[in-house]
Structures are given as structure tokens and as C-alpha cells.
Amino acid sequence: MHPIKTVFAVAALSLAATPAMAGATFDAVKAKGFVQCGVNLGLHGFSAPDDRGNWSGLDVDLCRAVAAAMFGDSTKVKYTPLSAQQRLPALQSGEIDVLARNTTWTLSRDSANGLNFAAVNFYDGQGFMVPTKLNVKSAKELDGATICVLPGTTTEQNLADYFRATKMSFKPVVIEKNEELTSAFLAGRCDAISSDGSQLAAIRANETPNPADFVILPERISKEPLSPAVRHGDDQWLDLVKWSLWAMMAAEEKGISQQNVESFLTSNDPDVKRLLGVTEGNGKALGVDEKWAFTIIKQIGNYGESFDRNVGKGSKLKLERGLNALWTNGGLMYAPPLK
């Protein structure tokens, strides 16, 4: 949020002693007994605290899944709310163990910034929201518009790219905090607000006085594969994070849910047996308990349940599954075989 915090993160990078390499994060997390998870300052559906300080959301569920796999207890998570600018330094400096903060997987972050992305937990795309009374039907009609945009994300760059490619002009208004940006947009400072489609839906559902007064334009101007990330240097930890997510997808594929998971313990399907740890081996390979995936499903549910509860039908956002449906339903969610 504030430049000061960026300075602190940079200072941490200067002062922290060099950590040992292989398995360092995995062992450190195991020893301290909880996962330190970097999340959004407050984005409904992904990570936001309720009035009693309990965090929930799609990204929060990922943190809980990792804790469930590691400790058999999904509550062993501590959350560090981070602004867009703080998130990378916080992970690089070791302040957090895993970053689950609607972060777009890009080449430069995956390489030059020293991060590894686990697996996509939400396929998003940047779009525009405008007041209905402006009578704009398509992003192609936005020539000359003033557009509110959050800094420190890929969003600013995508916006400039889109307008360059379509030979249109625009004026950005770049405000650092979500709330201030939204209130500037609602006050009419900008003609449109641009962000990831899911965020626009969250703003429309939660922060506008009347959601019907605002419309999200159909165009998606970018690919935003949102993925949890860890820092370079600990492959075992990276493996645990990505398979925790894939276990949730595999469970949905097999029809295993929070309610019926116990009845599947007696299943004859070899894939299900391996997933739930009835046939041993997966847990040992990952360095955790054989019941790791069972615990995740039991305590958090499968990917579909998490999606519906946080951003889908069962939430205020009411997002369609779309690209986030399982591959068997025409989406992109595809877990490699758990064997």
C-alpha cells in the first residue's frame, strides 16, 4: 500500500542472511508449524476478512489446502495481507512462504523475479466496466475515454497495449488503493474502470449502490492466469503447493466432495484409492502424511465447491465457471495424474 512498506521489504532483502537451499522452505514451514500465506488486502471472492477477522476466498482456500496437506489441519495458516507492490518483495525476502494473491503468471515473474508458479487456480482476463447510462456496448467505443486503473499490476500495461493496438487514445487515472480507485470511478472521475473480470464483478456486486447501473463490457483484453507462487530454490515446497491444488481438481473430476469423501474410502477405482491414500505412495513422495488429499477434501472441499462458495453460484459474485470449468466440461482445469 505505502512506499514505506516496499522499502521495508527491500531492507529485509538486504539484512536477511542467505538461507540454505534445498528443502529450506518445506523444512522451515514444518518446523514452525504453520504456513505464512501472502493474500490480497481485501478482494471479495479471493481473499477478504469478515467482520471477525476470518479470511475466506478462493486464494485463501489454496493456503488452507497446503496447510491441510502439511499438518492435517487447514487452520494452521497465518495471513499477510499485501498490496500489489509489496507482494513480490515479500515472497522474495522470505517474509511469506506462499503467495496466493490473484497474481498473474508471466514470464518475467517466473524467471527474472525469482518466482515459481505452482498451477493456475483461476483463469481471468482484463475487461472494462462502465456506467449503464453511458450507453457504451463495446470496448471499441472507448476512444478518448478516461479510465481508472490500479497501479502495480499487469493491468496498466495491458490497457496501454490494447489502446495502442486498436489505435485509440485514453487517459489513465492511477490510484493506489482499491477503495479510493472505486470511489473515484463511482464519483464519475473516469468513464470506465479496468481490471480483471473477476475483480470488476466483485466491485459491481459489493461496492456499487445499485449493480444494475453498471455493465461489464464483453471484451477481455488480456490473458490473466492467476496462480499461487513460491520463491526459487525449494522444489519440494513447490511440489506440495501445486499438488494440493491439483488434488482438489482431481477430487471434483471423480465426483468426490466434502460430504461424500468418506464413502469413497471403500471405492475400487485405483485412481480414487491413490488420491485418498488408501493405496499408499503419494504422501511419501511429497513428504507428507498419506491422508493429505483426503484431509484437503474433508476440510476444504473439491475445487468446484471452493469455486461456487467463493466466486460462483453460492457467492455474491455469481461468476460462471467458463474457462475455470474442468476440462471434461469444456474448461481449462486439468490435474495431471496423481500416481
Binding site: 513480490l88 518475467s108 515473474r109 497501479p151 502495480g152 499490476t153 490510484i175 493506489e176 480507485l181 473515484a184
Partner: peptide, 21 residues
């Protein structure tokens, strides 16, 4: 904080796009 593109605002965006804090 209110969106005036001063040095800090531009530097923040540059830091985030390049990751070179």
C-alpha cells in the same frame, strides 16, 4: 494516494512491472 502521476507513482509501476524493487 489520489492518482497524481508523481515520481513515486511512476516508480511504483516500474517496480512492479520489472520486479526490480
Amino acid at each position: 494516494a489520489i492518482g497524481y502521476p508523481d515520481l513515486i507513482s511512476v516508480a511504483n509501476t516500474a517496480i512492479n512491472q520489472t520486479g526490480q524493487a
